[in-house]
Amino acid sequence: MEALFGLAFAVLPALFLLGLGTFMGRSIERKHFADLKRREAAVSHILATQMKTFHQPNSQASPPMMLVSEVVISSDYLKSFVGAIQNFFGGEIYGFQTLLERARREALLRIKEQALERGCDAICCVRLNTAEIGGHDPAQKKTIVMVSLLASGTAYRRGSVEPVLAEAVT
C-alpha cells in the first residue's frame, strides 16, 4: 500500500504536467496560429523580400528605415517530453518544427506591423536570425526549451511607376 502511494507520488506530478502541456500547450498554440492568420491578413499588402535591393522605390518619399523585432517562444511540457523521446530514437521532431514556424511568422509579422505604423508598404533585406540569450547550461539539468529570433529589414515606400523607366518606354 505504501509502495503504491510512493509510486503515485512519483507519477502523478509528471502526469499532471503532461496533461497541462497537452491541454494548455495545444490551446495556446492553436490560439497563436489563429492570431497569426488574422494579423497576417491585415498586413498582406506589405511586400516583404529578402533582396538587398529596393523594388520600385519611391525616391520622393522619406528615406527608408531599418526595423528590428525580437520574439522568444517557449516550448510546452508535452512538446519537450515527446521531443526528448524522439531525440533518443532520431528522426524529425514535429513539435519543435511548428514552434519554429510560429516564432518566424511572429517575428516577420512584427516588422510588417512596424512598417504599417510608419506608413511604409514594402520591406526588403529581411533577415531572420536565431538569437542566443544564454539558456544552455550543461551543469544545470533544467534547461528551458525555447526559440529566440531576431528579425531585421528595411522598410520603404513604393512608387507606382519609376519615372525614368516610363520615359525610356515612350
Binding site: L20, M24, E70, S74, S75, D76, Y77, K79, E106, M146
Partner: peptide, 26 residues
C-alpha cells in the same frame, strides 16, 4: 525572469521577459 520562464515552459507561449531582454540589448 528565469522563474517566470520556467513556469511558462510548462504550458508554452511567448516568454515576454526574454523578448524584452532582447529588445533592451538590441
Amino acid at each position: 525572469r528565469d522563474i517566470a520562464a520556467g513556469l511558462k515552459n510548462l504550458v508554452g507561449g511567448e516568454l515576454k521577459g526574454y523578448t524584452e531582454l532582447l529588445t533592451e540589448s538590441r
